[in-house]
Write a protein that binds this DNA or RNA. Structure first.
Lengths: 211, 211
DNA sequence: GTATAAACATGACAATTGTCAGTTTACCGA
DNA sequence: TCGGTAAACTGACAATTGTCATGTTTATAC
């Protein structure tokens, strides 16, 4: 119901093409609207005091970026960067606020969406604080397969650098590299150039829960 | 505006007294309403596969528990436990949903509230993944002082067990104990029985950012 | 008050993870 | 296609953190 509404609005807007690596908005920036992802993938990250960029979420087609900040009327707490080439469209703040106030269904729908995000965030907190780096890396690959899919040969469609993977699981790049190498040796994953595929789903899943 | 509305509803409801340690609702439970905290403190936790209970949030007077689950129409992803004696009141789901659909202002207000929670959750993710245990323990004490206050002698009003502190910062109980002992030796905090006070705020703040 | 359990504490050690320093490999633009 | 640069990788070591074992103190029930 609201998705259609949003879609209708977004369809009327001109879309913008972003090159890989471009920043959509930065931490601390005041947003005067939200961005809908129509193609490509964006990483949402937050700089930690130690200088590392923790990736909090990966957003793909259909995701809306910046809605939290627009709704809370705060500047953004996250930075959004294009992981690969992207197509996004912009919806000005006024249009959002307007619809929000006039259409209760829309508000409830957004609310539901944010409730879902909140639950996911809770899960991430638990994973981060209670799982080992190895478990988190295993989970990350499963997550990438589940959420971004694979090509006809089983390779993950979304290719992240080792550094990005490290920033997703919250570890040093070298640690991530070492664990990935280990997974390859164990036959849990296989790699062809930059592309990675899950070779032993069961084994990787076991690894993710510590078996 | 909405807070008044909520308050009005909640005032008409009979309140319930909970003893320290009692469970308000458990993970996986279907909630047919939300709980407003009128006194005391509740910990919201999630069981991780390794058997530890990660505390995701501490809720005090004025907080609403279970709204995420009610709105998303899902069973709860968290367990709510009374940290000390509590007074809570219950608002049935119907009343919430009803108000939500009829009053756009209410929906937007709840939305804002959830947006705030989401930001906090993002911050926690970054802290958990990028800070050392020592930094997180230091932060925890600052958080406890800022959010729950101190008595006339400077002792934290909210007294958590070492185990709870460990579950807040996501570490082993022994590690938390050791770090607390170290902080005492360094003169950053002082203890009288179970009660803990921040003795050197500047020093503790430095510790929290890794100096 | 005393029993009993829970909470707190500490030592010793192992496992995990981070850091630094350096080498090799892959990729992109001229 | 060549060269430069970023990414990927490896080794060695230090620092952090977890685990297990055990003893002490503190709270709570009777």
């Amino acid at each position: 119901m609201t998705k259609e509404e949003l879609k209708k609005v977004s369809d009327t807007k001109t879309t913008k093409i972003l090159r890989k690596g471009e920043i959509i908005f930065d931490e601390g920036e005041k947003l005067n609207g939200v961005y809908c992802v129509r193609g490509g993938v964006s990483k949402l990250s937050k700089l930690s005091p130690n200088g590392k960029d923790q990736i909090v979420k990966l957003a793909t087609k259909g995701s809306v970026l910046g809605q939290r900040s627009v709704i809370a009327e705060e500047s953004s707490n996250l930075k959004a960067t294009a992981v690969n080439d992207m197509e996004v469209c912009f919806i000005p703040k006024d249009a959002i606020v307007d619809t929000l106030n006039r259409n209760p269904n829309f508000a409830v729908e957004v609310l539901r969406h944010m409730a879902h995000d909140l639950k996911e965030a809770d899960d991430v907190i638990v994973n981060m604080s209670q799982k080992t780096v190895k478990q988190r890396v295993a989970e990350a690959f499963i997550y990438l397969e589940d959420n971004f899919g694979v090509d006809d040969q089983g390779y993950l469609l979304l290719t992240l650098t080792r550094e990005d993977i490290a920033n997703v699981v919250g570890t040093a790049t070298e640690s991530a590299i070492r664990i990935i190498s280990e997974f390859k040796k164990l036959g849990l994953i296989k790699a062809s150039g930059k592309k990675i595929a899950i070779a032993n789903a069961k084994g990787l899943a076991d690894m993710a829960v510590g078996m």
